[in-house]
Design a protein around this nucleic acid. Structure first.
Lengths: 210, 210
DNA sequence: TTTTATTGGTAACCTAAGTTACACAAACTT
DNA sequence: AAGTTTGTGTAACTTAGGTTACCAATAAAA
């Protein structure tokens, strides 16, 4: 756990804080698909991502999802923090996108760290700021872009997150993330294939041009 | 300024902090329509709202707007803070929705206050948290609701902000806020009128039922 | 008063995207 | 091997909402 923490957060946190995290934090490895947070659940701790990626989703009233953004190495779920302080429930669902390594920090310590460590304060503020900016870009894409543009940037982001030009998703899964329907996604993917931008296969998609 | 600050923030900030704010803050009254922040601009200070309301907007690539949320009494633009720390540009535009009274706090002091005052830390964290939640609800409405539902909740929110059942907007102005077109808004408003939910007039709309 | 600009109503049309339905192939069960 | 499930392609249709165009009413300017 020491190496993990140092390599991902050594440049961010001072040594004393690193030591405190080592004492109270618990190291976790979760497999792809693991549900880390459910809507309406109370929050128990704050995750510090060491490796892998977590996708953060929102539900509509019918239980259909919409992908908001991904958390990656060095990120945290900043909302967690004020959730704990205010004892409010989670507004989002979080699922491991890939196999993921993270350190869970219990809530109790965090208020103390906030007054004690400047690096912790900056980390939390910056995290909030990043999340707000990601939400703004999510809004841009939903409000201003057509489905084909959204689909393309979804595929690109997914390729980036998985560091691979091969995306192992079915059309149905993509439709869930984009809050669309399978037929629409198949249609647009076929259009992208005709444009030479992707290559379609059963259960996976190859991205040709970025 | 003392009374303004005490009545809006007396319960939130400790006395010592209130005094500090009085020393470095500047009191401002801005009229309806006043532009407080432009996209791409650098941020000079953090606003503490005393009364009135500010609407926060986002632009698409063609310069068309979309209303994100309103700031009201007791709110602040939390993004301002990390904008200043990181020297990044504003991602949003802010316009006074009504005549508004506010206190501008220069950025320099804020980092100090963050370590010195617990109430300030909590205020900033809570502000971020509220903003994230508002953005989530904005996303809900854009991604999950039809235009008629969005229009109705827009009118309701606007009535609430202006504390009046009479909304002084043209159809075109509403269309801008909802990132739609005038014809569509007129069409849907007429439908709402036929349902007995609103009464249409030139330059204003009366809300009948909430 | 006559002209001009602003605002709202409505029709006709177009397009993106959601829906239903069905065919077919690959990949599993048994 | 036969049946079943899962994933994909495609056609036909529907609908929300964007676009263009034009008219009428009101308000402001000349």
């Amino acid at each position: 756990m020491i190496e993990q923490l140092r390599s991902s957060y050594g440049g961010v946190f001072e040594n004393e804080l690193i030591n405190e995290i080592l004492q109270v934090g618990t190291y976790k490895e979760v497999p792809e698909g693991f549900k880390l947070m459910e809507i309406g659940a109370y929050v128990k701790g704050m995750p510090l991502l060491v490796s892998g990626a977590i996708k953060v989703l929102r539900d509509d009233k019918n239980g259909n999802e919409l992908l908001l953004y991904y958390l990656e190495q060095g990120d945290t779920c900043s909302m967690t923090m004020t959730c704990c302080m205010g004892q409010t429930k989670s507004e989002i669902r979080a699922i491991a996108e890939t196999d993921t390594k993270l350190i869970m920090v219990p809530v109790q310590k965090m208020e103390l760290w906030t007054s004690k460590y400047k690096s912790w304060r900056n980390f939390v503020f910056e995290s909030y700021h990043n999340r707000v900016n990601e939400l703004l870009h999510t809004i841009d894409s939903i409000a201003f872009d057509n489905m084909d543009e959204r689909l393309l940037s979804y595929l690109q982001k997914k390729a980036e997150i998985n560091s691979s030009y091969t995306i192992n998703s079915t059309h149905q899964e993509i439709a869930y993330d984009l809050h669309s329907s399978r037929v629409v996604i198949s249609r647009l993917l076929k259009k992208l294939e005709n444009l030479g931008k992707v290559e379609l296969h059963r259960n996976y998609i190859k991205i040709m041009k970025l």
